[in-house]
């Protein structure tokens, strides 16, 4: 009897200590960003030209990347989620690869594909299109790494739609595209929004692929993460912290939004 109780107490103590360690490990760095310098200084720092440029570039590129991901990813996810065809699982795996691929490798890949001497880049060059080190390159880097966050969520959402509803729509006179727009998309809406929020957050935080494929040119390709690194490099810790604090706040907001979206089902 006493033995069992001792064991239970030990287990509880170990769990408690583990929780405390984890909380400190995750919580402290986030807290430190806000505690190092007064909040008013952080806000003031955001008005510096470097920070403002980076914020604008980040917004422009990440939102463009998101638009691209949603427009291209939604129909593809619908196909992958609702149709069975040979090679489907290979495609799904391929589209998920950027999740685990080191972003720097993604950047290298983009460079040798779309760069000046890349597979497709050389042909683009002939038409006068040059992608590397432009804001389009930033968008491409972000879209590459953020795509799976949206597509995975969207595939799962479309796959979970009762096929009977799709059949009902067809027998009621709606063709495949009307059925997609009026049944599939509305039913998947919450999941699609959640996936979009996650993808946007990932695009916003993109660093490795962007640094390699687009560089860090202030006012052109320098996004917030790149500006943070650059400020850190030039020992401007206050600017660093200001932009970091902004990204922490945004990330937190995105996560909360995603949780709310995935919990609620508007029609219930």
């Amino acid at each position: 009897m006493r033995h069992g109780r001792l064991l239970r107490l030990t287990a509880a103590a170990i769990t408690g200590i583990a929780a405390a360690v984890l909380l400190t490990f995750v919580g402290l760095p986030l807290l430190a960003i806000f505690l190092r310098v007064p909040l008013s200084t952080l806000v003031a720092q955001l008005h510096s030209p470097v920070a403002r440029d980076a914020l604008l570039i980040s917004l422009k590129t990440s939102l463009t990347a998101l638009a691209f991901i949603v427009v291209v990813g939604t129909p593809v996810a619908h196909l992958l989620g609702t149709k069975k065809f040979p090679g489907r699982s290979v495609l799904v795996t391929l589209f998920e690869l950027p999740l685990v691929l080191p972003p720097v490798v993604a950047g290298i890949g983009l460079f040798v594909a779309f760069g000046r001497f890349g597979l497709l880049g050389a042909s683009l060059q002939r038409f006068g299109i040059r992608l590397p080190f432009t804001w389009v390159a930033v968008v491409m880097a972000q879209a590459f790494v953020a795509m799976p966050f949206y597509v995975r969520q969207a595939v799962a959402a479309f796959a979970s739609i009762d096929p009977q509803l799709v059949r009902a729509s067809r027998t009621l006179g709606a063709g495949p595209s009307k059925t997609f727009l009026r049944v599939a998309v509305p039913l998947a809406r919450q999941s699609l929004s959640a996936g979009a929020a996650l993808a946007w957050a990932r695009a916003l935080g993109e660093f490795g692929a962007t640094a390699l494929f687009a560089g860090s040119l202030q006012g052109i390709t320098q996004t917030l993460p790149l500006a943070i690194y650059s400020a850190f490099d030039s020992a401007d810790l206050t600017a660093c912290l200001a932009m970091s604090a902004l990204l922490v706040a945004v990330s937190f907001g995105v996560l909360i939004t995603v949780k709310i979206l995935l919990r609620s089902r508007a029609w219930v």
């Binding site: 009762d162 009977q164 509803l165 059949r167 729509s169 049944v183 509305p186 039913l187 508007a266 029609w267």
Partner: peptide, 8 residues
């Protein structure tokens, strides 16, 4: 089961 659209 009716297959009514739950979002409408």
């Amino acid at each position: 089961d009716g297959a009514l659209f739950p979002h409408l």
